[in-house]
């Protein structure tokens, strides 16, 4: 049993995949000799050498293009995009090429690659280095979208992502890199598409992802201790594929739903989930599905501004109380 940070679990997860399968290689900017700007890939170059851990130029299109082409031949690249915001400069390769080539080729081509990227706010980096962009990739048919909330999920989901025959975007949350967990077994696999129940309760279902799942869990502990409210907290772990069955089961039990999203409001993933719930569980609902999101603004930088933009534990607690007690 060892304590592992989210950061260390990333490099361990990559190393475990690379040890198991010679077809796996890793490519990105500053990932090898420097160990990554978040130090999440330290030690990989030393263990696997330059042929399998490639330091690339600042060429996001060329990085993802090379990963895609290699994947088309059956290799299993893991490509890093340093900040998820930079996906905007290679979005053609992601959304037009990687996502669509299997379909357009009538299944002649598989693209088994993983794009891992540092996502989300909390670091006061401002509007171009802090975005939470899972919903961008969720809108594109052909991409799987994973966002782990804890070290064990990083390990288990990375194992599945690398083995997956389809392209997976793996959003690591910057504010979780220091998050610690006691881990018994590191070489684990968690199927993509299975949500995780972080907290049990009968009064309301709170649905979150990545950092927001952890905040929802903290909120649930406060709600239970101080307000006698028992919340179920679902960590979706992935948006595509989505574990709709777990959501449905939970909504049938509680009748109240709150989604907690870090993305700006418009077309956030919670909107899609809200729509699915009204389609599938309308009769089980005791009130409207509501959403807590970042407001529809670019993320500001100053401490007080960013802290009041991204949904906080306190905000989640208050929203739940408002919903259930009408306060």
């Amino acid at each position: 049993m060892a304590q592992l940070t989210y950061r260390a679990s990333v490099s361990l997860a990559i190393a475990q995949s690379m040890r198991k399968d010679q077809k796996v290689f890793f490519i990105g900017e500053d990932v090898g000799a420097a160990g990554g700007v978040f130090k999440a890939t330290v030690g990989l170059l030393e263990e696997f050498g330059k042929e399998r851990v490639m330091d690339a130029p600042i060429s996001e299109q060329a990085i993802l293009g090379a990963a895609m082409g290699a994947a088309m031949t059956g290799l299993r690249p893991i490509a890093e995009i340093m900040f998820s915001d930079f996906l905007a400069v290679c979005w053609d390769i992601v959304a037009n090429q990687i996502a669509k080539t299997r379909y357009m080729s009538d299944g002649q081509i598989n693209i088994p690659l993983v794009i891992r990227t540092a996502n989300g706010g909390g670091s006061k980096f401002g509007a171009q280095h802090s975005q939470s962009l899972e919903n961008w990739s969720m809108m594109i048919p052909g991409l799987k979208v994973v966002a782990p909330s804890c070290p064990s999920d990083v390990l288990g989901l990375m194992d599945s992502a690398v083995k997956d025959p389809d392209p997976v975007i793996f959003y690591e949350h910057k504010s979780l890199y220091a998050f610690k967990e006691e881990i018994e077994q590191t070489d684990i696999s968690i199927p993509i598409g299975e949500a995780n129940m972080l907290h049990e309760g009968k009064d309301i279902t709170i649905i979150g992802l990545a950092l927001m799942a952890q905040r929802a869990k903290e909120a649930a502990l406060i709600l239970k201790d101080k307000h006698d409210i028992n919340a179920k907290v679902i960590d979706l772990r992935s948006l595509v594929p989505l574990d709709l069955q777990t959501i449905k089961k939970s909504v049938i039990e509680t009748g109240h739903v709150l989604t907690v999203e870090e993305n700006p409001r418009l077309c956030g993933w919670g909107a899609e989930i809200s729509s699915l719930i009204s389609e599938h569980c309308f009769k089980n609902l005791k009130g409207p599905v509501t959403r807590v999101t970042t407001p529809h603004v670019p993320l500001p930088s100053a401490d007080i501004l960013e802290d009041n933009t991204i949904p906080s534990v306190e905000l989640i607690v208050n929203e739940v109380i408002k919903k259930l007690k009408g306060e």
Binding site: G65, A66, G69, A70, M72, G74, D92, I93
Partner: peptide, 24 residues
Amino acid sequence: MGSYAIIGAHLTIANGTALASKYN
């Protein structure tokens, strides 16, 4: 390995099959 309709993308992708030949 495909015909590509967004200008430029396939130059980067072709590097990938070339990289695979080198890797293998």
